[in-house]
Amino acid sequence: MTVLGWTRHRTNLPSGVRSLHCGDWTILVSDDPSIQTARHRLAAQVSCFDAGLDFLPTAPAQNIAIYDATSFTRTTDLDALWRKLSDRGQFSVAVRMAADQEHRTQDGRSWLKTRQAQRQRQRHCGTMLADIVAHLKLPTTQPRHTENSASCDVLVQRDDTNRVHNAMQHLARLMQGPPDMRLCVTGLWPPFGFVDLTSKTEAAE
């Protein structure tokens, strides 16, 4: 049994998903034996979300036991989270640059220079990402950085998806960057980046 998340809804569940009632909450579970990995759990959660189901998703990397999912309904302020996240999803927004072609260096000095250039690209991506999300005026997560990219999640109301899509297209045209810089947007995902579940019991320990 795989726990996918929590919802207030008790009807119109996607096929393959069943509900376990726990007070005012419904725990969404799947008995599909092929769901073995974090990526499988993510795919199952995305299917539920695409089917229009509004729910608070578990972190895909965690295979939460049903006991813990039940416990969370008593020890965590799911109501506050629901008010914040119901009817919402997230876009993952990334600014990327092409990887440095001179990565294989011959000596220490050229390695240092390459490293400095990477750092410059990383800063450039981060600055561009900050400018773009500032224009959107929507809640975002902290930026994540890799060698050639900066990314974050943007919380979006489901019925606002098209407006945000259009805004991204407008911003991509508006922003000026190097030829190899691109704006990558994926979504709409369940709002994984905004679900912060810490039980009151654990927090007090």
Binding site: A38, R39, A94, R144, R173, T186
Partner: peptide
């Protein structure tokens, strides 16, 4: 120069072997 814009759905990202999309999925898992 304007930024190139690439958009993808979650289903595209999960099925894709493109490095950028794999990174997005990995970011969600971690």
């Amino acid at each position: 120069m304007s930024l190139a814009l690439e958009m993808a759905t979650p289903q595209d990202a999960i099925r894709s072997s493109d490095t950028a999309l794999v990174d997005v999925v990995d970011g969600l898992l971690r």
